[in-house]
Every structure is written in C-alpha cells, then in structure tokens.
Design a protein around this nucleic acid. Structure first.
Length: 499
RNA sequence: GCCGGUAUCGUCUAGGGGUCAGGACACGUGGUUCUCAGCCACGGGACCGGGGUUCGAAUCCCCGUACCGGUACCA
C-alpha cells in the first residue's frame, strides 16, 4: 500500500489539508504502507520554497513523518513536480504521436466566448474541440512559426459513463459528455494539475489516492488518462471538506485556519491530530481521545463520513486541555518558555530556572486551554504589584474590609521562615486566623489578594510555596520574584497609605 | 445553467425496517474548592420536507429543498 500527500506550496498548511494528510498517514501507518510526500509546485506564480519549507515543518510538527519523498529521497523521485518536467514532456510526446492528445491554438478570448455561448445555451461549458482536427503537419508548421499552443487530451468520442468505486462514497459515475478535452500541458510547457498528478501517481506506484472532495470531478478525466497510457489506476477516496461555523469553507474570517497558527496559539500537536481525526471519522466504542498509533490501528476508509464537518475550536480546546494535563512537566516547561519570554519574564533560563519553571508551568497547564494562556496564569509570580492591585476597586474594597487579616498576615510573615510547602503555609494561615478571627473564605481570599495581587488563580496551597521558591532562586534568567513576606508588607503598607 | 456529492441534538458523531435514537463538545442547574479553571451529579436538546414500499420507515425507493464541490493554460 503506497499513499501520498501532495500539497501545493502556495501558503500555509491549512487544517483541512492537514486532515487529508493525516488520513493518508493513518492508513499508511495502520496498514504498514508507505507514506510519500510530493510537492505540486506547477503553479509557478503562487508557489514558493518558503511555503514548502513551512508545510514540511508543520507536517513534522504534527508527527506526520514520511519515508519517501521530498527531503527523504526514494526510488521514484524526484518528488518535486518542477524537477520532473522532462518526464511530463516525454509522456506528452507519446500521447501526441498516438493522436491521443493534440495541440490547441485557441486564444483565451475565443475560449471565453465559447464558454459564455455554451452557458447561454444551457450546455456544459466544455471545450468545443475546435482544434481537434488540425492536421499534424499544419500544427507543426504553426508551432515553428512561433504560435503558442497547449496540448489537450482527446476525450474519446461518443457518450460513455466513467464509473469508479470511491472508497468512501461508493460508486460514482460521470458521463464523458460533460468532459471537455482537458489541457495537459500549458503553452509555457508546464504541465497542468490533472496531467502531472496522473503521471506522478502512476510512476510513483501510488495504490490509494486519498484527497479532498474538491477533486472528485477531476477523477474521470484522470481515469481517462490512465486508460490512454494503459495504466492501472489507483483506488480513490474523496474525503469531505472542513467548514467554518457558518458552514462555509473554513477561511481567515473564521479565525485561525493554518496549522502554524494553532501551533503559535499553544495547541499541542497530539491534540490537533486527535481532533482532526474526529472530523468525519469516529474511532468507535464512544471513545474519542486516543493516542495516534491507536487511531492508526483503528482507521478504516469505509468508516469515513460522507458529509462536510464544521471545525469546532471549542472541542479542539477540550482535546488540548486533555493533552496538556497528560504532558510531562519538562516538556511543558520547554514549550512555555517562548510565551514567558514574550511576557518579558524569562530571558535565558538556567537549568535551575528550568526545574523551577517545570513545577509552576505544569500547575498552570492544568487549568488553561492553550500554552498561550500560561503567562496570564503565572502573572502573580513574575508581575506582582500591590499598588497596581489596589487600583482595582473590587480588590481595594475587599482589602479595606479585611484589613485586619492583611495586617495579621504581614505581621506573622515577619516572624516566619519562607512558606516552602503547603503545611507551612497552612500553619501560617492558622496563626492569621487566630490573630484576626477570620476563617474560611474571609481568611483565605484576603490572603490571596495580598500575596498574589489577584482575585482568582491557582490554589493558594500551591501558589504560595511557588512564590517562596521563586524568591529563593539565584540571580538568573528569570525576573526577580518577591517573597511572601515582601508582598504582605508592601500590600499592607500600600493599603494603609491609601486610607 | 449543467454535472457530481451530502443531509441524525447548536457542533462532531454512533446506530439503523420495531431502540427510552447512544456518546462527546458546548449550554443550563446543583455539589466540591478561599477564588477562577477543573472535577462530580443531574438536565434540556436531533433523524431536512413530501410521497411511495411495508403490519411497521429516522432507516429502503422516488421527488423536492438546502448546502458543498466542479464546470480554468489553479491545484
């Protein structure tokens, strides 16, 4: 079993295409097949090496590795279409010599006029075949005179149904009557998609073509080409497209659409792949969250749904939360560093800094949707300011009402060693309770406000020791973290100053 | 216009001639926690419409409607 993903390097890898790539990869992985990566860069104006590089990076990030193709090599290369021009040329010459293809000199203006006329008459706007019967030597003469021509495939005469068994949709049928002679080679000598794809899939011995539904009506043309060459066509499977919430094709105005954007927002690759697999396919047994090798083991084309699916960012976020909770602390810390740098709190973390970050990041990761939200969750550590907190009316109000708790906290902390674990913190809270008479919410919430500067956040039992350990960090690649004692003193002072 | 495809809760889906039409996300209510998030429990919510076949249709067939794709010297 040989499968391929063949993107055009004309922009970022779109999640819809990523899903198509994933389906190919899952099938190859699950069935012990080969997954091949080919680059379809025949659109010279829009293609770029930069896009190709970005797409390859996105695929690798998702874990969709290939053992044959661009940058991997293989026996059926080259794997970039612009490096295969000689191959397409040779096969076009063969078709021409057999009369299965012909040169067409029609101008674009003429073609457009034909199209409008056909539309007006209620006929399919297919090429009328004006140049079909230009004699071979006349064609040669015109070419020698410098006239531009495209090479068209000669669709066999007479109405005939082209039928194929689509592995996800079942039998699909098209009449040759609605198929105009397709352009194989453009006037600049570059092959058109429908031609290059057939040559490549055949020569690369692709056995299963899994692609987007937008290619389904190309399939009969391609089948005709396989027939003309006497080649056995691969099996085809057309998967539905991914839509936006309004059920129109997923596009920029729906927000993020590319794999790179989701990565930048802090989605984990295993979350994206797991979620993408769930659009139009179900692993069964009411299970949804499965490791990728398990997905591959269960994946079957026959189980792929027929209808288009809406991309649901909320559900992706839920899947991501699941994997965020499962991720190893050292990995989370590493992944969070760019975001913490972005906030200006981390520059060049030492190994001591990293082990500190491991503990705090992995706690923060328990309660966010995405890595991008981790800085906000950890702002209490790196960006504490009593004065700034008290500028917020609700916090100022609560602090005034609980002034005795805050003062007691500052006083007790003066005499206390650092609160490096939850028990030490609890013991201090107990002393504050005895001194102030407050308990429960009236006790802990003012302490939270004074020590974190925020009204909500991670559990105090964890937050306070994190503050204390941060304050003890050697001068490092992390901004200084104020100790609980400093915070309580600063807060009580600021509160008294305002009164 | 023509050709092709598709249709189960708001969304992703399971199922499929007789089911209380199942699960997940989201949503609502309650519980838990100093707080947010989370977690737990409970709850509301669907077979596109019309015909036909059948004892019985959401399921099979036909028609319609809606949506998506194609109709390129784009892929």
């Amino acid at each position: 079993m040989r499968l391929r993903f063949a993107p055009s390097p004309t922009g970022q890898l779109h999640v819809g295409n990523a899903r198509t790539a994933l389906f190919n990869w899952l099938l190859a992985k699950g069935q012990g097949g080969t997954f091949i990566l080919r680059i379809e860069d025949t659109d010279l104006e829009r293609s770029s090496r930069e896009s190709e590089r970005a797409i390859l990076e996105d695929l690798r990030w998702m874990g969709l590795d290939w053992t044959e193709g661009v940058e991997a090599g293989g026996d059926h290369g080259p794997y970039r279409q612009t490096e295969r021009l000689h191959i397409y040329r040779a096969h076009a010459v063969e078709l021409l010599s057999r009369g299965a293809a012909y040169q067409c000199f029609c101008s674009t203006e003429q073609l457009e006029a034909d199209r409008q006329a056909a539309l007006a008459a209620g006929r399919p706007p297919a090429y009328v075949g004006r140049c079909r019967d230009v004699p071979r030597d006349e064609a040669r003469r015109r070419i020698e005179n410098g006239e531009k021509a495209v090479i068209r495939f000669r669709v066999p005469d007479g109405p005939r149904d082209i039928v194929f068994n689509d592995l996800v949709r079942g039998e699909v049928r098209f009449s040759t009557e609605v198929i105009g002679d397709p352009v194989l080679v453009r006037s600049d000598g570059v092959p058109a998609y429908n031609y290059a794809v057939v040559i490549d899939d055949a020569l690369m011995q692709i056995t299963h073509v899994i692609r987007g539904e937008d290619h389904i009506s190309n399939t009969p043309r391609q089948l005709l080409l396989y027939e003309a060459f006497g080649w056995k066509p691969p099996a085809f499977a057309h998967v539905s497209l991914v839509m936006g919430p309004d059920h129109s094709p997923l596009s920029k105005r729906h927000g993020a659409t590319s794999v790179a954007e989701f990565r930048a927002r802090g989605f984990l690759p295993e979350a994206l792949t797991n979620y993408l697999a769930l659009i139009g396919w179900s692993p069964g047994e009411d299970q949804e969250l499965l490791p990728v090798d398990e997905l591959a083991a269960r994946f079957r084309l026959e189980d792929v749904g027929h209808s288009a699916g809406v991309f649901d960012v909320e559900k992706l976020a839920w899947v991501n939360r699941h994997y965020l909770k499962a991720a190893a602390p050292d990995r989370l810390a590493r992944l969070a560093v760019p975001y913490l740098k972005g906030a200006g709190w981390v520059s060049d973390p030492s190994s001591g800094d990293m082990s500190y970050l491991e503990t705090v990041v992995s706690v923060a990761a328990q309660s966010v949707d995405r890595l991008e939200q981790i800085p906000a969750r950890l702002a209490f550590l790196f960006d504490y300011s009593a004065a700034r907190a008290l500028e917020r009316p609700s916090i100022a109000q609560e602090a005034r009402d609980a002034a005795s708790v805050i003062e007691a906290t500052a006083r007790e902390l003066e005499a206390s060693p650092p609160l490096l674990d939850r028990d030490t913190f609890r013991a201090l809270a107990k002393k504050v309770q005895l001194a102030s008479g407050a308990k429960g919410k009236a006790l802990f919430h003012p302490i939270r406000i004074a020590l974190t500067g925020e009204a909500d956040g991670i559990e105090l039992d964890i937050a306070v020791p994190a503050i204390e350990r941060g304050a003890l960090l050697a001068r490092s690649g992390i901004v200084p973290i104020l100790s609980a004692r400093q915070r309580a003193t600063e807060f009580a002072g600021a509160l008294a100053g305002r009164a």
